[in-house]
Design a protein around this nucleic acid. Structure first.
Length: 313
DNA sequence: GGTCGGGCTCCATGTACTGA
DNA sequence: TCAGTACATGGAGCCCGACC
């Protein structure tokens, strides 16, 4: 409809007259209400020119020659094609060009975008996995978007990760956007999927499935100004930076956090005695002042690690 | 018959201490 | 620095009786 509005304004200025575009029932679609008359081709009456173009009547407050009418028809059909092209844009065009979010509302409802981050050629594996399914792939420089209606996206993503590992021996990170609904378009979903995969890689993950809802906090941190964070880190004790460089301590702490602060489970996963784990946690406390056995202090610790990884490593 | 609360047992976990 | 041991604590599951 924007194109029709541009059309009315442009032609109106050029011909120094008023233009109105009506549907075949006489309802004004855009432009000025200069009067409506139905016609099968063109009609000149009372100083006005009425031109039928497919499903609209264009009324012009001026007498036009046949050549001018033909030229106008040509322009109108061109506008039509442009509008149609907007509605028919393939997903690749949508993801790679500056298509307004507004124009995508109502399309791809219920679909979701995944972004499979991988620099190797894995398209053949995906085509095999999804042979016969309604799914679209879009490649870019760092991976492949997968657009589909999912029943169990996490399960499918893990199948993809395992399939690519089995067939190619390659680790991949998969990011996921949210399901398209209302204001949230397929372009939003694809962007969020790519951001999730990118952030997961920056955080040190080699493979796995990362949902944007769970990555929002990292996206937020990633968007913070570097100079602000440098100022923040300059006020932090050097011992904290030493921990970040101590692989054993940092692995211990991260496993403990992944186990929801469960000492026994973390010790099992790390193949160390529970008391060894407690000893290391105590050491972290001595160096940072943060007791990561307590939820709030564990959260602060996790945030500081994340900021360091995303912005300084 | 279904629901709720109390008592009991088992097991996982936390803490403190000790020794290699 | 790490592991072993003993003891305390708390949660989960089960059973049973009281109540509606």
């Amino acid at each position: 409809m924007e194109d029709f509005m541009d059309f009315c304004e442009g032609i109106g200025k050029t011909l120094n007259c008023k233009i109105g575009v009506y549907d075949l029932k006489g309802n004004l679609i855009c432009g000025e209400d200069v009067g409506y008359l139905n016609t099968d081709d063109m009609l000149i009456k009372d100083g006005l020119t009425y031109i039928k173009c497919d499903k609209v009547i264009v009324s012009v407050s001026s007498l036009l020659s046949q050549d001018a009418v033909n030229l106008l028809k040509l322009i109108i059909y061109n506008v039509y094609e442009k509008e149609a092209a907007n509605l028919m844009q393939p997903i690749e065009y949508i993801l790679k060009h500056d298509v307004p979010y507004e124009s995508l509302k109502g399309r791809y409802e219920g679909y979701k975008a995944l972004y499979i981050k991988c620099n190797e050629d894995i398209e053949d594996v995906l085509l095999n996995v999804y042979s016969g399914y309604n799914v679209e792939f879009v490649k870019d420089e760092n991976g492949i978007y997968l657009i589909k209606k999912f029943e169990d996206d996490e399960n499918e993503a893990n199948s993809i990760i395992n399939g690519i590992w089995d067939e190619k021996g390659i680790n991949v990170i998969i990011g996921s956007g949210k399901t398209v609904k209302g204001e949230y378009t397929i372009k939003h979903s694809a962007e969020n999927a790519k951001i999730s995969a990118y952030l997961a890689e920056r955080l040190g993950f080699k493979n796995g499935y990362f949902i944007y809802e769970k990555m929002v906090i990292y996206d937020l941190i990633n968007g913070l100004r570097r100079d602000f964070l440098e100022k923040l880190f300059s006020s932090i004790d050097n011992d904290f930076l030493n921990i970040l460089r101590d692989r054993e301590l940092i692995n211990t702490a991260e496993e403990f956090l992944r186990c929801d602060l469960n000492i026994s489970e973390a010790a099992r996963r790390l193949y160390i005695h529970r008391n060894t784990l407690l000893y290391r946690i105590e050491k972290i406390k001595l160096m940072t002042g943060l007791d990561i056995k307590a939820f709030e202090e564990a959260m602060v610790f996790k945030l500081l690690i994340t900021v360091y990884r995303l912005k300084f490593s």
